[in-house]
Design a binder for these strands. Sequence first.
DNA 1: TTTAGTTATTGTTTATTTTACACTAACTTA
DNA 2: TAAGTTAGTGTAAAATAAACAATAACTAAA
Lengths: 233, 233
Amino acid sequence: MPYTYTHPRPALTVDCVIFGYDHRLDEADLKILFIERDIEPFRGKWALPGGFVRMEETLEAAAKRELREETGLSNVYLEQLYTFGTLDRDPRGRVISVSYFALVNLVSEELQAGTDALSAQWFSFKEMPALAFDHKNIIEIALERLRGKVRYQPIGFELLPDQFTLTELQTLYETVLETSLDKRNFRKKIESYELLRDTGETQRGKAHRAARLYTFDHKRYKQLEKYGFLFEI
Amino acid sequence: MPYTYTHPRPALTVDCVIFGYDHRLDEADLKILFIERDIEPFRGKWALPGGFVRMEETLEAAAKRELREETGLSNVYLEQLYTFGTLDRDPRGRVISVSYFALVNLVSEELQAGTDALSAQWFSFKEMPALAFDHKNIIEIALERLRGKVRYQPIGFELLPDQFTLTELQTLYETVLETSLDKRNFRKKIESYELLRDTGETQRGKAHRAARLYTFDHKRYKQLEKYGFLFEI
DNA sequence: TTTAGTTATTGTTTATTTTACACTAACTTA
DNA sequence: TAAGTTAGTGTAAAATAAACAATAACTAAA
C-alpha cells in the first residue's frame, strides 16, 4: 500500500542509547546495549536498538517499542537526547533519527533477542565493536550528556539495583565521572541531601564486614525538586 | 510532482525560539520573536518562525533558512532544543518538529518581514499573544533550558551588544534568572573568570558617571573550556 | 561655577562550604 | 582465634560565598 505526498519527506527513526552498569563487578564499568543487524544496510554490524516511527505512536512510544522488540527491555525511563539529521547518515536515503537514552542496572534487567535482531548484547567502552550508521557519534553525545547530567541530577541511582551500599554508589560515580572521590566527604555530601533511606538490612555473603543497604527516596526527591533543590556531586 | 513511499511518513518541520534582549530599556526584559501566519492552519495567529525541512538541507540549515526568510535574521548561533512529536500537534496530520533556540541582542539585529509571513514581531513574556500549534509548550521548554544554561555557560553575552557595561551584564542576569544579585559580589565573580576585556572606552551621553565598556573574550573562553573550566553565576 | 542628582567603582569581615586526612568496627575464612 | 578485608566515622584548615556602604565621576539645573 503506497503512500503519496506532494512534497518529499525524510524517513523518521528513533535510536536508543542504553547505558548499563553492573555494580557487582570488581572492575565496574559502563556498558552500552547494541543489537546485531540482520537486515541490510549494515547487516551483521552492531547498532543501537531503534527503528522507524509509526504514524500512530509518539516518538517516545516508538523508542520504547523498538527497545522492547529488539532487546526485551521494558519499563525503562527514556529521555530524549538529540535529533540527528545530516544528509548522508543512512545509505537508504534521507533519514532523520531522534535519539533517546536510558540508564539501567545490568543485573536487574534480562536481555532477550527479539525478532528484528539476531542478538542483543552489552559492550563495555573498551571493547566497542564497529557500528552501523552514525551510531558512534550518537553514543559520544550520549556519554557527554550522561557525564554532564550525573553531576547535577541524582540519576546515578537508576544504574543501581533498588537496594545498594554507599560504596557501590561511590564506585558508580567514580566510574561515570572517571575520578576518585574521598570516601568520608562523599558520604557526608550524600547524607546532607537526605535522599537515601536506610533499609535496616545489610549485605550478605561477603567475606568481610557487611555494608548497610540503602534505597533512593524518589518521592522525597520529587518534592524537593519543586522548590529548586540543587543536587551536586 | 508527487512523492510515493511504501510506508507512511510524518512531515518534518523546524521551529526557532529566538530570545531577544534590549539592554537599553529601563525595564529590561526578555522577548521572543514571532511571525504572524498568513496561511492556514492558524492563519492570522502568531507562531514561531519555522517551516518544512527540505530534502537537501540539514535540520540546522532548514532552521536558519526559515528564520532568514521569515524575519530577515541571519548569522545567529542556533542550538538544538528538543523534538516534538505528539500525534495531535498539527491539524494537517502527523508533523514532527525539531526546535532550535538562539539568543540575540535586539538592538544589533534588524527585523524584516519575509515572504512567508505578514510580519515578524518581538513580544515580551507579559504580552504573549495566542499562539499556533503547540508553540506555547515549545517556548516554555526553551525558557527552562535558557535558565538552566545561563548559569553554567557564559551564553548571556550573546544577548548583549559587542561592548557592554558591567551593570548591563548584571541586569541581564537578574532579568533572565529573575533574582537580584549583589553588585560587588557579581563583579568579583565575573572578574575572577578573566573572560572580559576592558576596551578602555566608556559609555557616552548618559546623565551621570560614564561606565567602562567591556567585550567578551570568546577566544579565551574556548581555550579554557577545553581544560574543564567551570563557569557559574 | 556651584550644587543636586544619579550611577560607577571598590574592599573587608563573617559565614558557609569544601577539602584533606587515619583510625576503629564488624564481618568472614583459614 | 587470628588474619584479612571492607565499613564506618570526625575534625581542623583552606577556600569560597555572602553581607554590607562609602567615595568617585559625570550631567544638568540653578
